[in-house]
């Protein structure tokens, strides 16, 4: 029986049974797998770490896309850094008021592979006319682009590995540069119960560039270890306090249904456990 054993932590790990291997790529420095698990559906792993599963991807993608977009209330232009599987693009494009999405993925092969083996993630989003796909290093893109955005979503890998630059001071500075006034960025920030240092580091680096910096959270079961945090950076301090009635109206107007996100969850997700508050 084949098994995937996650290699994130020395002392603990989660194991998934591999029921069928769909895709496996092992170059010198990278080991990518997409396999089927009876409970989780299709699972994508990179270098021994779970990236996404069909069963719980909606929690991650809905929370990363809808919280900043509904909080903003008038997001026309959205930038996604990473997100090669297409799930984030799918959720962002559900907002009809979004006129343009630029998605910057470093590796074209990831998109091709995800279209083929994880088709439910993008669900046709790559064909949407509002989507522009740029194959480039995310860091270089934010450094060089003249485009401006209302919402930036950093859908990166773990900070150890290819996503490393997306957790740097410089990256946050450039994101701030290309945000329109009143814009907001949200960034994947790991599981604080086991990776509290990552919360501390992001706090330190991000708050140097944004007058309002905090985190919001959601539990994504296969990101093992309880809640995960999403970093929040903006100069518009009012955004995180967007009133429940306002959010309800925006959600209602948007006219689509979600499976995890709700205006109530939105508000609640900014309440952080004391151990996270203490760390920041």
């Amino acid at each position: 029986m084949k098994e995937f054993q996650e290699t994130l932590y020395d002392a603990i790990s989660q194991n998934f049974r591999i029921d069928k291997m769909y895709f496996e790529q092992k170059t010198g420095h990278q080991h990518l797998m997409i396999f089927h698990n009876a409970v989780l559906g299709r699972v994508m792993t990179l270098d021994g770490v779970v990236q996404t599963t069909e069963l719980d991807e909606f929690i991650y993608h809905e929370m990363m896309a809808h919280v900043p977009i509904f909080a903003h209330g008038n997001a026309r232009r959205v930038l996604i850094i990473g997100g090669g599987d297409g799930g984030m693009l799918r959720e962002v494009l559900r907002h009809s008021e979004v006129e343009h999405v630029t998605m910057v993925e470093i590796d074209a092969a990831v998109i091709d592979m995800a279209k083929k083996y994880l088709p439910n993630h993008s669900a046709g989003a790559f064909d949407d006319e509002r989507a522009q796909i740029v194959i480039a290093d995310g860091m270089n893109y934010v450094r060089e682009t003249e485009d401006r955005f209302d919402v930036i979503i950093s859908d990166s890998t773990d900070p150890i590995g290819p996503g490393e630059v997306l957790f740097t001071n410089d990256f946050y500075a450039q994101c701030k540069r290309i945000l329109n006034e009143g814009g907001v960025m949200a960034a994947q920030n790991g599981v604080p119960f086991f990776q509290i240092d990552e919360v501390k580091n992001t706090r330190l680096r991000m708050s140097a560039h944004f007058s309002d910096q905090t985190f919001y959270s959601a539990a994504v079961p296969t990101y093992y270890g309880g809640i995960m945090t999403f970093a929040w950076g903006t100069d518009n301090a009012a955004l995180r306090g967007t009133a429940i009635d306002e959010l309800r109206a925006r959600y209602q107007n948007a006219g689509f249904r979600t499976r995890y996100y709700s205006p109530e969850i939105h508000i609640a997700s900014f309440a952080l456990p004391q151990y996270v508050q203490d760390a920041i």
């Binding site: 290699t7 932590y9 590995g161």
Partner: peptide, 9 residues
């Protein structure tokens, strides 16, 4: 970092 990416912890 390379070791951690390789799952060697």
């Amino acid at each position: 970092r390379a070791a951690l990416r390789g799952g060697s912890t």
